[in-house]
Amino acid sequence: MAVRGLERIVSEHPFFAGLDESFLDLVRGCAKNVRFSPNQHLFREGGPADQFYLIREGRVALEIAAPGYGAVTFQTVGEGDIVGVSWLFPPYRWTYDARAVDRVRAISLDGKCLRDKCEDDHSLGYDVMKRLVPILMNRLQATRLQVLDVYGKPAA
């Protein structure tokens, strides 16, 4: 895909919607197109968190390993969502698995590249954090509801 196409895709993704054009120029310098086949992992728990994904097409299951249960999906995300926020927080390791449910097309942003740009320009870093925190809060809420669903109502 031409660089121009990549610029448009990053600019139009809901996560970066409304981001200042100068910030978009910085972000796009960290981006590349990627694809995943069904059941292929985008990343695995414990591995180096070095990417951040803007999902363009397909669904991704976010999973945690549960002793006696195997992989438990706590949320499934799709087009317009993001996957992978551990690139921003030390020790930069994945805290869950992300697995393609079907064919996934995404933009992969190099985590170190983006982290360095956020560190160099704190206004960009603040804007990225304002976009990430609501997503983290929603994922935390989804996980809480999943736990309640799995374990049910406590005994009286």
Rank of each mutant, 00 (worst) to 15 (best):
S86M: 06
V34T: 04
N33Y: 13
L145P: 05
L24H: 06
F52Q: 00
G46R: 14
N33A: 10
A66V: 11
D25A: 10
L148F: 09
V101T: 08
A66D: 04
V10S: 03
G78Y: 05
Y69T: 10
E79M: 00
E119W: 11
D120W: 12
L145T: 07
A98E: 03
L140F: 08
E7S: 08
F15Q: 03
G70H: 07
G68K: 01
R28K: 14
D81T: 00
L148A: 13
E119A: 14
V104H: 04
G80D: 09
H13S: 01
F52A: 00
D116R: 07
H122P: 12
E119R: 15
P91R: 06
L88T: 01
C118N: 10
E63I: 10
V128E: 05
L136G: 08
V85Q: 10
Q40W: 07
P154S: 03
R56M: 12
V3K: 14
C113T: 08
M1P: 14
S108I: 03
E7R: 02
Y151L: 06
Y69V: 05
V128C: 09
L54T: 04
A71L: 10
P90A: 09
K153D: 05
P67N: 00
G152E: 02
V77R: 10
I107A: 04
V128P: 10
W94F: 12
R28F: 00
V3Y: 14
Y96N: 13
S11N: 02
A49L: 01
A142F: 04
N33M: 10
C118G: 13
R4M: 12
M129F: 06
F15P: 08
F74I: 11
A106T: 02
L114C: 12
Y151S: 04
A61H: 01
N138L: 13
L62P: 03
L148E: 12
P38H: 01
G111S: 06
Q141N: 10
Q141R: 11
G111C: 04
F52S: 02
F36H: 02
A49W: 02
R28P: 02
L88H: 02
F52C: 01
T95V: 10
R93G: 08
Q141S: 09
V3H: 14
G18L: 15
T143C: 06
V83W: 03
Q40L: 12
R131V: 14
G84F: 08
D97G: 01
L26D: 04
V83L: 01
P48K: 11
V27A: 07
V128A: 10
E119M: 14
E63Y: 08
L88V: 03
G68W: 03
V34P: 03
I107H: 07
M129S: 14
M129I: 05
D25L: 08
R8S: 06
I9P: 09
G84P: 01
C118M: 14
E21Q: 15
A98P: 01
Q75V: 00
E79H: 03
L124K: 15
A2D: 08
T76A: 05
F15W: 04
K112H: 06
C113S: 01
L132P: 07
I107T: 09
Y126H: 15
T95K: 11
T76G: 09
Q141L: 07
L6Y: 02
C118L: 10
P48F: 13
S22A: 12
Q51T: 04
L140T: 07
V72K: 07
K130H: 14
A155G: 15
K32T: 07
P48M: 14
